[in-house]
């Protein structure tokens, strides 16, 4: 009997995620001799990530390729990975992710999900309609954040930024009318929706990383023969770690280059090390005040210790 696995992702079909999912789907069908059939659904056709998680819980869907925001609907502390300026570069992120993966597996399993593969997925930056360099500049502006990322929204609110909730569909209008004068989002998304044409100034300083994870509900996964499970896992991890991660890194870099080159396009705001230190102090203090509410203290400390390890090793 074939096991159908409907997998949803909010990423578009023609994106590194789409390609990776297609590839995994083909591999799984080949490895299982047609017994495991993955059916991918792309874009927001099956709803936002909160709704996708619910659909997996009720077995309407059997799995999903989720972003960190989606994963934190399953296990809230996970969002702490994207706490502002906690993790600062790709190497740190890769190390944290590698170390943390077994723990993430456990957290997901406790909620009825199997973590199949994880991969770094990019960075979130500040964009604004006017030039800004420092936290004090940004605080003058109304900062649009989607309430879908509840924790991030609350964290910036707690840090006394003038946060406004922006629906994805309303963001363009909100930027045009100045209801939001700045947004906090990934360059890829800002480019895809052409928000960069309005909020043209991007602080060239990465604030929060996020990663993606392929998950499947345990009741579906447990129907697969254990020896086959092992092969499927291996193949999926291979695609995620080798191909997806590289493709995303390249896409983000190329994307930003293209947006800068376009006429009326993106303007990168480069800041000095002193200014970066101001951001660090500011966001670090803000972060401390939101530990225990928006972000999870234990997870925060765990990531801190992993990062300390990383720094020791790389000395």
């Amino acid at each position: 009997q074939t096991i159908q696995i409907r997998i949803a992702t909010v990423a578009p079909e023609k994106s590194p995620y789409g390609n990776a999912l297609r590839k995994m789907s083909g591999e799984w069908e080949r490895i299982s001799g047609g017994k495991v059939k993955m059916i991918p659904y792309f874009g927001d056709k099956l709803g936002d990530e909160e709704s996708i998680v619910q659909k997996i819980r009720s077995n309407n869907l059997q799995g999903a390729m989720l972003t960190l925001a989606g994963l934190s609907y399953i296990d809230k502390p996970l969002i702490t990975v994207s706490a502002p300026l906690l993790i600062e570069n790709d190497k740190q992120l890769a190390y944290v992710l590698e170390t943390l993966a077994p723990e993430i597996d456990k957290r997901l399993a406790a909620n009825g999900f199997i973590g199949i593969a994880y991969s770094p997925a990019g960075w979130i930056n500040f964009f604004a309609k006017t030039k800004f360099e420092l936290p004090s500049d940004l605080r003058q502006l109304k900062l649009g954040i989607s309430n879908k990322s509840k924790e991030i929204y609350a964290a910036f609110q707690a840090m006394n930024y003038r946060v406004v909730n922006v629906d994805v569909a309303e963001t363009t209008a909100n930027l045009l009318t100045n209801r939001a004068e700045a947004i906090f989002t990934s360059p890829l998304i800002a480019g895809a929706y052409n928000w960069v044409g309005i909020a043209r100034y991007m602080l060239n300083f990465r604030i929060s990383p996020f990663f993606g994870g392929l998950i499947i509900n345990d009741r579906t996964w447990n129907r697969i023969d254990p020896s086959l499970q092992k092969q499927l896992l291996e193949s999926a991890r291979n695609v995620a770690e080798k191909e997806l991660a590289n493709a995303l890194e390249k896409l983000e870099a190329d994307g930003i280059k293209a947006m800068v080159a376009a006429s009326g396009g993106l303007i990168l705001v480069n800041i000095t090390d002193v200014q970066k230190a101001v951001w660090r102090t500011e966001l670090e203090a803000g972060l401390q005040s939101t530990l225990g509410s928006a972000f999870d203290s234990d997870m925060y400390n765990r990531i801190k210790s992993i990062l300390a390890d990383f720094k020791k090793k790389n000395k």
């Binding site: 099956l46 709803g47 936002d48 909160e50 709704s51 619910q54 659909k55 009720s58 077995n59 309407n60 869907l61 629906d167 569909a169 309303e170």
Partner: peptide
């Protein structure tokens, strides 16, 4: 092979749109 729950989930997220 599944129930109405997925559709309900869509309806509930629709309630949360502006």
């Amino acid at each position: 092979g599944f129930t109405f729950t997925g559709a309900l989930s869509d309806s509930i997220s629709n309630l949360k749109t502006s």
